[in-house]
Design a protein around this nucleic acid. Structure first.
Length: 556
RNA sequence: UGCCCGAUAGUAUAAUGGUAGUACGACAGUUUUUGGUACUGUUUGUCUAGGUUCGAAUCCUGGUCGGGCAACCA
């Protein structure tokens, strides 16, 4: 039974349009500019655009908005395609705004012929000052009243490469006194003698966003062109071009972009982090990019669930990054196999367990699935446990190993902690325990109530692996409001590498991108970039919830 | 100080003139061979002042606060 979920405002519009018969099917598009990697903000847009046509029928195009050759690159095209598909969406058509350059040129010519566009020789500065301000009207350019014939000729010459960058532009002839600044004779074309990643050197004039985006939508019969709030003032111009050109009337709808706590979502600033070497590339697991989240171990399911939960509205928002972590835990808890890994070892000797003996325990892979499966875990006289799981003088609420108390070794025996050995400096070198008879899993005494259960690995069988523990990249929750530079708030401890953690041997079978829960520690994924047959590297996706840590914090 | 958009628990998001609900968080508890998971309970909200109405989070008006708009960027 599907749960009745309320609609967001865009779904309401779509339902109305379908109900009224305005459209038989809807068409949306995801229109990235290939000038950087996709991040969580794009994921929200992707889920919205593809989600709409998944839900209501129709289809979604992937369209690269590649109208600015100096910033764009095929590297970005490739990564964008990979990320969209990885999220689980498939576009109907792969299009490029650059595929429409010829048609857009013809559109421009038709506007010139209608007397609705003109070539302007003014400099950038002159045009800027001619725009006026939001409270004072602009002034007409001295070139505004050129004849149609002259405009036609000059525009052709612009295309033919007769002019240098910046020498001339094509402008729409609207109203220099318009209240909406975007209507004050906006630029349609500028000259850029630059190599384009797809059209090469064929063009030296390139359309501006406003004269490419809406027209591309129209060419593709996009019914609902969904974008973010900063484009609201562009909508009047979007509609003006479509109306003046008398082409298919796509409509633009705007929603609030995603902001997350402790997260930088500006492509430009992310590029800065990459270029300055603050992070190790766009897919550094601390980045908010899709490729980074993938490497970090987030699943597409968890990202889509997150996008579902945050909703779509027009109000500015700042989503707690904890919600993304919640979605990751929720999914990973269901799908991951459990393994035991000791991060910071302390040696424990089971004094009454025979030397040289290996007992193979049955460990549950995942208690959350219906049909349980098991793996073999070797148990021996000498094991490692987590240093923080032993305490010599423990408070009453401490449920782990402490002298005189019993604790359960996960999937193995209950042991009693008998004594501690120290070196000359008083450092603990070894803890001695004895077994509680028949307390092995399934044994007679196995169901005895013991407060704590801890994880362990057999010293003889343990293998080594590198663990990378990530923390948030920034120390400030709301980077937009924080004074100063965003780089002032970099978290210097966002990456903590444990070069030699001790892993149970079954982990040797891990393959690229395999997810695990390291019991009591967190969710990890085998890093495809840094792992080799000699050295396994695991990235921590997210910790487990830790109510003991919370308890400790309270005491502070 | 022109125009545009917005304002509901800590954070998001519903309620579309008729009981202010949900999720995450926080807090308390139950269960547990993960101090995990699951489950239960508690907590906290309609920016403000008027108006319309039998009845307003919702409609109207004024105000306040937040965001956006003057790139040959998208």
């Amino acid at each position: 039974m599907a749960e009745e979920k309320s609609l967001n405002f865009i779904e309401e519009i779509v339902e109305e349009d379908l109900k009224s018969g305005k459209y038989k099917e809807i068409v949306t598009r995801f229109p990235p500019e290939p000038n950087g990697y996709l991040h969580m903000g794009h994921a929200k847009s992707i889920c919205l655009n593809f989600g709409l046509t998944e839900k209501y029928g129709g289809y979604t195009n992937l369209r690269f908005d590649d109208t600015n050759p100096v910033k764009e690159d095929v590297e970005y095209v490739d990564s964008i395609k990979e990320d969209v598909q990885w999220l689980g969406f498939q576009w109907k058509n792969e299009y490029y705004a650059s595929d429409y350059f010829e048609q857009l040129y013809n559109f421009a010519v038709s506007l010139i012929k209608k007397g609705l566009a003109y070539v302007d020789d003014s400099t950038a500065e002159e045009i800027a000052s001619g725009k006026g301000t939001p409270t004072t009207p602009g002034t007409n350019s001295p070139y505004r009243d050129r004849t149609i014939e002259e405009n036609l000729r000059l525009f052709q010459e612009m295309r033919d490469g007769k002019y240098k960058d910046g020498e001339k532009v094509l402008r729409a002839k609207i109203d220099m006194a318009a209240i909406n600044m975007h209507m004050r004779d906006p630029l349609m074309y500028r000259i850029k003698h630059a190599h384009h990643h797809r059209t090469g050197d064929k063009w030296c004039i390139y359309p501006m966003y406003d004269f490419a985006h809406g027209q591309s939508d129209s060419i593709e019969d996009i019914t609902h062109s969904v974008c973010t709030l900063e484009f609201v003032p562009h909508r009047e111009l979007y509609d003006w071009f479509i109306k003046s050109l008398e082409i298919f009337p796509s409509h633009q709808y705007e929603f609030a972009r995603l902001n997350m706590t402790y997260t930088m979502m500006s492509k430009r600033k992310l590029l800065q982090l990459v270029n300055d070497g603050v992070v190790d590339g766009w897919d550094d697991p601390r980045m908010p990019t899709i490729s980074a989240l993938r490497r970090r171990g987030f699943t597409p399911e968890s990202i889509r669930e997150f996008c579902n939960r945050i909703g779509v509205a027009k109000r500015d928002n700042l989503i707690d990054v904890g919600l993304l972590e919640f979605c990751a835990r929720e999914h990973l808890n269901r799908i991951t196999d459990r393994r035991m890994v000791v991060f910071d070892p302390i040696k424990v000797v089971i004094t009454d367990f025979p030397e040289g003996k290996t007992e193979w325990m049955e460990g549950e892979n995942n208690p959350e699935v219906e049909t349980l499966t098991f793996r073999k875990i070797p148990f021996t006289r000498e094991i490692y446990i987590e240093r923080e799981d032993f305490m010599e003088d423990a408070p009453s609420k401490y449920f782990r190993m402490t002298p005189g108390k019993m604790v359960r070794l996960k999937s193995a025996y209950i042991v009693n902690c008998d004594s501690v050995e120290k070196d000359a400096d008083g450092n603990i070198t070894q803890v001695n325990c004895s077994l509680l008879p028949d307390s092995k899993s399934g044994g007679e005494n196995a169901n005895i109530k013991v407060k704590g259960t801890i994880h362990w690995v057999s010293i003889e069988h343990a293998k080594k692996a590198e663990l990378r523990l990530y923390d948030r990249l920034f120390t400030e929750a709301n980077l937009d409001d924080a004074p100063g530079e965003f780089k002032d708030y970099l978290n210097l401890h966002s990456l903590d590498i444990i070069p030699d953690a001790y892993i149970e041997p079954s982990l040797l079978d891990a393959k690229d991108d395999d997810h695990f829960q390291f019991i009591r520690k967190g969710y990890f994924v085998l890093d495809r970039k840094h792992s080799s047959s000699e050295k396994l590297v695991f990235n921590r996706t997210v910790t487990l919830k830790d109510s003991w840590a919370k308890e400790l914090k309270k005491g502070e």
